[in-house]
Amino acid sequence: MLLEARGLEVHYGGIRAVKGIDLAVDEGELVCLIGANGAGKTSTLKAICRLIPSRAGMLRYRGEDIATSPVHALPRKGLVMVPEGRGIFRQLTVEENLAIGAYALGGGDPEPQYASFPRLRERRKQVAGTLSGGEQQMLAIARALMTRPKLLLLDEPSMGLAPLMVAKIFEIVREIARQGVTILLVEQNARLALELARRGYVMESGAITLTGTAGDLLHDSKVREAYLGEGVA
């Protein structure tokens, strides 16, 4: 078990955004967490990488309790998040962004990233804020890969992108997974996420309501109705 959460709770003041969920990711898996807006997906992800504190529950990464470890300690252990809205350094160049990505390891060669994202190599001197949405997402992923993650947390990589670009980003995610990086993917685009992932969790108002293999979920009538926009015959 690479990542294990049990009874994880996140509160915002009096509001329980995540109500004691259980979630596990095995080494080498690509797992997705789907659900509607405000279901608590991003809160779950942020709690896992410690950007927000969890109120209760157990959180283990490679057998180690990380429920109280500081945010900045996790990238060094191989747990890296690509935040929602990308979180790139907009005023810095592509190169500089990648250099900061290598911070946790004390430096690194961006060459493998340029090899996987030729578009970024062409724009290495360009200011990140001037890249297109898709390129910014690529940069966010490439920057996270600079840390050589074991577990990559992706928060809505398809957000705000044109369908063609979404397909491209998902292709990249598939390729990263193929190279052996374990991925926990949070997505609103349930169909694409389930087609890509091996297993999935469905989240609804702070709780996990369904879980299973991606194939089963794709054919589940409730999922089809609620998230895939299909009426049940």
């Binding site: 900045h72 990238p75 935040p83 900061i100 911070y103």
Partner: peptide, 8 residues
Amino acid sequence: IAASAMGI
């Protein structure tokens, strides 16, 4: 936030 997520 992004900085801390990068291990800073």
